[in-house]
Design a protein around this nucleic acid. Structure first.
Lengths: 205, 205
DNA sequence: TACTATTTCTAATACAAGTTAGAATCTAAC
DNA sequence: GTTAGATTCTAACTTGTATTAGAAATAGTA
């Protein structure tokens, strides 16, 4: 209802996007409660009150940022997986899914880390508004590991639930440490390859 | 200067601990900026102003919570590792270190998730005050993997830096999802065993 | 140019929150 | 029981912030 459908190129939509971008950037750095609307307004060269012509409340702004974040991640993961051959095996699929998740998280880091870092803290209404999208994405990964297990691609005795949560942790945590290393650090692809390899094969010789 | 030394059993120290506990609980749930002092005061049946008899500012409260959090984690990890035989091999050591980190994170979850979840958001002064402790703990893990590599316990080509960051992610993320599952979910020990096994051997058959 | 709709600004409101000073209360020792 | 010290409360002050209503300005159109 909010991302794909409001893609007209009217001037109004354009400034709405600018405001949303500014909000994502501020929220990601200072948190929801730590960000005054004044900061967001200044980022787009506006006065605070003017924001209300485009958004009904600060909470709604956060809601849009969170929704867009989930959409971006889900779409990117789907894209990366879709690039593979139809008969791709589990290791390739996992590598692609991790790559997609990391690309989204680290490319659109304003949106995703605004969401990931402060998810626990914003109001219940914001949580509820993104619940179904997040459930969909979670289900994607559930199905993914279910199928892998059915194919015998996962070692017996491995708890799929903990597996998914641990992999999520490894990926999402990257949004915390990745940033100061714009050029010198590892590339997103190489991080994805590393993590996929680690989760598949471990670090032992 | 703050944790071990102020362990007298005077009434003053006791209420200071109560306030610190309340602050940790509130901060962990609502974040630093999202927590009014009123909430902390009510948790210990006080009026807001009375807190200032024990703490000079809200920021200092956060600082103490963060410091205690780092200490708790580091100490617990050391304890778990120290329980092992002197000649314990890398897999056992890693399992113990992960167990310690998770025990700390999930047992003292008020303190640790107050710190982990909002670390990026609180004022610079708070960051600086905990910098050295955090550096020490990070160095512990660096040394740990350096030695493992020297012993040939880590597969050639595995990036130790990414390895440490990814393992940290897997562990720290547990502070986000672990909580509603007090009894029905996996125990802390079993989570630690699972994660150690995953990072060591991967999930493939 | 004049008129209308869109967008932004100004200024005020209302309330919440961190902090402080001094009064009030409680505790414990003499 | 009185008194001194420790602890908490009351009541203010100041600042900041989300939100709103209406004025001003801008842009587009006939």
């Amino acid at each position: 209802m909010s991302i794909a459908s409001t893609r007209q190129n009217t001037k109004k939509d354009k400034t709405q996007q600018l405001i949303l971008d500014a909000a994502a950037k501020c929220f990601s750095k200072q948190g929801f409660h730590g960000t005054p609307l004044k900061d967001i307004a200044e980022t787009v060269n506006m006065k605070t009150g003017s924001l209300y012509y485009h958004f009904p409340s600060k909470e709604m702004l956060m809601q849009e940022v969170l929704n867009k974040s989930v959409q971006l991640i889900y779409n990117t993961v789907n894209d990366e997986v879709a690039k593979l051959e139809d008969n791709a095996a589990f290791p390739e699929l996992l590598r692609a899914a991790i790559r997609g998740h990391l690309i989204a998280i680290l490319t659109y880091s304003d949106y995703t880390s605004a969401s990931i870092r402060n998810y626990g803290q914003f109001p219940e209404a914001v949580h509820l508004a993104s619940q179904s999208s997040r459930d969909d994405y979670e289900q994607f990964w559930r199905d993914f590991f279910d199928q892998a297990e059915a194919e015998g691609a996962i070692r017996a005795g491995v708890d799929k639930h903990l597996l998914r949560l641990t992999i999520f942790g490894g990926m999402n945590w990257a949004s915390v440490w990745f940033e100061s290393k714009d050029t010198d650090g590892a590339s997103v692809e190489s991080i994805a390859d590393f993590q996929a390899d680690l989760f598949l094969n471990g670090c032992r010789p």
